[in-house]
Design a protein around this nucleic acid. Structure first.
Lengths: 333, 333
DNA sequence: CTGAAAGCGCTTACAG
DNA sequence: CTGAAAGCGCTTACAG
């Protein structure tokens, strides 16, 4: 064994009485028809005995690949992106790939952050919610974009958020709601633009439908203020459609602060179906976005890209989960 | 430039009219006193012009290090561990290290999972909430354990959860509570054992104090059932101390389902201070655990270990955050 | 101050 | 069926 402690293929070769290249062939699983089964078994036993594991740096150097993919997301502290990571890492592991996460800080834009991490050796990039023009900076590195503008030219895996928002609107319309308030995320991302556009179109199609909107950031306090602004209007909406579940929690607070009961006085809907949705009282009617599947499908597409393929864009359906935060509107005052 | 497209130090050397070793010295920042400033500048310009970035696999092979650390945690879908990751990744990046996350699935134990990822080339391991005996499997790889049993022999960075739990008990005692219910996590981990022991000792020290306990898993539904069991006792507790914030959300539900108001009829406390704590109504009195700092301090300790140091164990204080889910107990019936 | 050379541990033609 | 050898792109003594 080499003096540094960790055994190399050369050590295994010596222990098994064969050449180093034979060890490499056996360990790489490319020996059938080239090495006698008896020799192969001797090598495998020696490898196990010595606790041999191939040096990845050497393999990577030789093959020109790292079998590592970078996942760029807004924040891992958001449970949604934790699920995206889980799906991506699962599929990656099935193919012998690792995932390095690059969360960019809230204050730093995506513009330069990932490139401040020059120590990363990666084969490809999986990224969520990035502005499309940022893709151009990834010159040469294969990219798959998640839940992002498909017009950017990159391969995308999307949620069908427009269909999800139409399902919300149809549900509210069926309950009898006409005056809809949109508690919107004030974030310039494709997914939120689409949600807003789809809701506006759906309300426009309702007979007698009207839509008002207030924006906030993706946190409880900001959403509470935005929702409160809508509830303080003269002719207040009977339903608040929120851009995600956390904002819906803020809408609950705005309603309660005004003595309004959810759902008797005002209905509230969310988006994502996080664990929060059932932690709230009443439990939240929301659109379930399959975050784990997004990560998994995205990684599948990226591995296809790395294989030289041309994976086609995919879109994952959201599902309306009706719980107890929505009900018919109160009778006119 | 080499035919594969990506420039190497050899390409830069040719463009700058110097040798490859000079390029390496300049790029590695080890040139002062060895290379003339003029030459160094020529090299740097050529490197920028060609878009040269050192091949990490080659550097890793040469140096016998990967500058990568594996973070092993229960799940990234839990926002708590997202924050741990953020802290660890921040400190790692400051030292030119990358972090690979290894979340183990809920159903698989930690026993073999990380070793089913043999494609990872790592220098060290940062891990949370692992059973102490698992450390022995990491033979040879430096390990720092987070929020885990310090008796295991590994370097640890802990939360002072015992002190946090004592603060909860003191807060409740000061409000007048004596009959305490513990909604406990049924997970065999150091951090939860300590929470239970500290609470038991604190209640024992209260004049007239009594403690009953029910256990559940770390989710809303299971915690709701456990809390409900306590609330259905003949002489029901006036306060429910929950092992984390999500379980507290379950306790809220159990109370509401029985027509009990929080905090008028029963006080509830949590642990962690996740975003959920202020999304709930009423906002949750809880112990804030600095998850980002845990990851950061853990990574600092691990880098110290990799530097050949012997970092001493650290303990991070929790902070009781009093909100509106706790109040004096109702008058005796 | 600069360059030629060794060598990290692999994979993979190539020769036998 | 097996082995000797080249070479991936670096870092770092060593020679000049």
């Amino acid at each position: 064994m080499s003096s540094t402690g960790r055994p190399t293929s050369r050590d295994v070769a010596q222990a098994a009485g064969v050449s180093q290249s034979t060890v490499s062939l056996v360990m790489g699983g490319k020996w059938t028809g080239r090495i006698s089964p008896a020799t192969a078994q001797t090598v495998q036993e020696a490898a196990v005995r010595l606790g041999y594991r191939p040096n990845l740096a050497a393999r990577n150097l030789r093959l020109g690949t790292t079998r590592t993919v970078m996942l760029i997301i807004p924040s891992l502290a958001a449970p949604f992106f934790g699920a995206v990571h889980a799906g991506a890492a699962r599929v990656a592991a099935e193919h012998g790939f690792g995932v390095v996460v690059y969360p960019w800080p809230d204050d730093a834009g995506p513009a330069d952050s990932p490139f401040a991490a020059p120590h990363e050796a990666i084969d490809g990039i999986l990224t969520s919610s990035l502005a499309a023009d940022v893709v151009s900076r990834f010159s040469g590195t294969p990219v798959v974009m998640l839940d992002s503008d498909p017009e950017g030219g990159a391969t995308t895996v999307l949620f069908d958020v427009a269909e999800g928002m139409r399902a919300v609107a149809a549900h509210l319309a069926a309950l009898g709601h006409r005056r809809i308030g949109h508690v919107a995320a004030s974030i310039d991302q494709w997914t939120f633009r689409i949600r807003g556009d789809a809701l506006a179109a759906a309300v426009r199609a309702m007979p007698g439908g009207s839509l008002i909107r207030a924006s906030g950031t993706l946190d409880v306090g900001s959403a509470r203020d935005a929702a409160g602004e809508l509830l303080d209007r003269h002719n207040r909406p009977t339903a608040l459609v929120c851009d995600d579940d956390l904002m819906a929690a803020g809408a609950y607070k705005a309603a309660r602060a005004r003595g309004l009961d959810v759902p008797r006085d005002v209905s509230v809907t969310g988006f994502d179906d996080l664990q929060l949705a059932i932690a709230l009282e009443p439990e939240l009617t929301t659109v379930r976005l399959p975050a784990e599947a997004l990560g998994a499908q995205g990684m599948t597409a990226l591995l296809g890209l790395l294989d030289g393929g041309r994976p086609r864009p995919r879109s994952l359906p959201g599902e309306l989960i009706v719980r107890t935060s929505t009900a018919p509107p109160p009778p006119p005052r």
